[in-house]
Design a protein around this nucleic acid. Structure first.
Lengths: 356, 356
DNA sequence: GCGAGGATTGTGACCGGTCACAATGAGGGC
DNA sequence: GCCCTCATTGTGACCGGTCACAATCCTCGC
């Protein structure tokens, strides 16, 4: 990696001040021979401005390259059209895709988008406060404990929407929130595996937003419910992380047990690790063991065996969350009741009927 | 996916105005019985304030929950400590990792970070202008044509640093920029494959920032140079995209040709697609064909066969780019000359000696 | 020819901080 | 005891827009 840059400004000649300040509405007013207020009216498309005056002002705006100062606008009007996303991660597929949806929606609406990562090291309250200071509103991605903790600590007076792992337990949530139906999706995936003849389904968990137990969270719940409904006692879930390495370690143990014939994973990265571990253990997929992931990351269809998974519409999550925040920012509150897409089970090569 | 939110405010009683405005320094001044300027001095840690006064003011600040208004600060002081990243993508590994590096660096420095995606649909100049209006500076990720185009159109007066694919062709770049040594990395990877006994190395290209030809860009260059140095005429590169699907299509063709025994790919996603296509074509990796990717995405070590690749330090790229921008924002200009990490060839299962 | 009323434009204050400078008070040297 | 200096504090103007209101102009109806 290499770095470069211009070597000082040393070459300019004309203006004594190299950096001439941007034109203000007063400059434009002077150039057009009107008052600053008239310029303001032209900028804002106020109806009562004489056509000729408007043209003159517009010409001056063009000539001076005037752009309305966003900072001054925010200060004077008291409104800041901007969104800051608070998240513990930006690279994991679910997070990245949600972020992408948020960016798209904010761009379409003309809102600047900020991103701030929360970490266990930094002081949560300080991070939140500085994000809130930016003005505008917050969207918190609360897929994990850290994100959920951040959401809890957002002061009540800050406009804020949340993307969460599961519906809040209380009846009336104090914050507008969106979530996907993870529980149902996990149940469907588990039922599918059972229907293929597998006697039980093992679960490799992702960390959840509520509690540290691996049996917590909607995906684990759906899995457990499906097993119970089939009269099967759920085995102990494994997994201690989000990434392929964690999946590999969980898979190593599961691979040693010949009774294991079906594994549901909390995300596709974990599934990849599990696949790898099974391969090392000499177990074939899907002949010996079926594996289903979660999220449908972009590469999941291209690994071998290609990964059966549950496709989640993170994009829609992002769009909807932005809508919730915007409604809060623009009007008083009350969110638009969207009816977004349900998760979809995508069957590929990594799952199949049990071979006795 | 399900949506919820609070149903109107209907329950508040106490304050006539539900939303009481945040305290200003004048409020604090009144509460502490001093002038607003004294409050300002306390906030900014000015030395000449009597200890007793300082304590009184600090108590008032606590009591009123005062936080300095970032907008007013920016307007009055004229400086906006913030960075906006302009990029054509946020999800592809290289981009996402660079973004992560930028976020870390900006967070450490206390700068808010904005993200704006540029698309072929939106008007580039408008996008840039609105990003610049936010104040602060810009970091443009110019890995592809769109990003490079955006960089070209950033007005000269806007503080801006760039992360680019390759060093600018001109002698003195007009903008501070960072890049990794892709050419050298591609050369090393190609040389490695040649040293394994492969007679030639095929290249599946990523789109580049300069021109549409697949033979353009530093990775292609390094590959070509290595072949030429070995007295081999470079075959025509293939590839038309960034993702695994594009790799799959390129791989399908290459797989049909029994002479192909070594393939270098412009990134790991492409390599995954190539791997998949080779699998479908009945060619074994690495016995029949060696494949090397680029970037070392997180899952690349966990697919089977695990992917040999070139690890790029995108993180460092992000950190350095932020440093360049910050230097420009703080002082006049001139960037710190860092000596960052070189790319590393990571050898895994997908590459090996040629089997005649 | 004059007043009413809308169209058009201008003035002053303000948003919440900062800066520059003035005013006050206290300590030290003579 | 007087003057000077420095520490401490306050006042006014300003950043670049907005809002509220006042002032002027024009046109119309009678």
């Amino acid at each position: 990696m290499i770095v470069t840059g211009h070597t000082s400004s040393g070459g300019h000649t004309d203006p004594p001040q190299g950096q001439q300040k941007a034109a203000s509405i007063r400059d434009v007013a002077q150039a057009a021979g009107v008052s600053y207020q008239t310029v303001s009216r032209v900028i804002n498309g106020h109806p009562n401005v004489r056509e000729e005056t408007r043209l003159r002002v517009e010409a001056a705006i063009q000539a001076l390259g005037f752009r309305r100062n966003a900072t001054a606008l925010a200060l004077a009007s008291g409104v800041t059209r901007s969104v800051t996303v608070l998240t513990s991660n930006t690279v994991l597929y679910g997070y990245a895709a949600t972020l992408q949806g948020l960016e798209e929606a904010s761009r379409a609406a003309g809102y600047p988008l900020g991103v701030r990562v929360v970490t266990p090291e930094d002081d949560l309250d300080r991070t939140i406060a500085s994000a809130a200071d930016t003005g505008g509103g917050l969207v918190v991605i609360g897929f994990d404990r850290l994100g959920a903790a951040a959401l809890d600590r957002v002061p009540a007076h800050v406009p804020c929407a949340a993307v969460v792992e599961a519906p809040p337990p209380g009846l009336t949530p104090d914050r507008p929130a969106v979530w996907a139906d993870d529980r149902e999706a996990a149940r469907a995936a588990t039922e599918h595996l059972l229907s293929l003849g597998h006697e039980t389904v093992h679960y490799v968990a992702i960390p959840t937003s509520t509690g540290t137990r691996r049996s917590a969270g909607p995906r684990a719940e759906g899995w457990r419910q499906a097993l119970r409904a089939a009269g099967v006692t759920p085995p102990t879930p494994s997994g201690k992380g989000w990434d392929a390495q964690a999946g590999y370690e969980a898979g190593k143990k599961l691979g040693r047990n010949p009774d294991v014939t079906a594994i549901l994973c909390g995300n596709d990265d974990l599934a990849l690790g599990v696949l790898r571990a099974l391969h090392h253990a000499g177990r074939r997929v899907p002949e010996d063991v079926s594996v289903i992931g979660f999220d449908d990351a972009p590469h999941s269809g291209f690994v071998t065996p290609s990964l059966s998974t549950v496709r989640m519409d993170f994009h829609a999550l992002g769009h909807t969350a932005f809508g919730l925040l915007r409604a809060q920012l623009d009007t008083g509150h009350q969110p638009p009741a969207t009816t977004p897409a349900e998760p979809v089970l995508v069957l590929r090569e990594s799952s199949g009927p049990r071979h006795a």
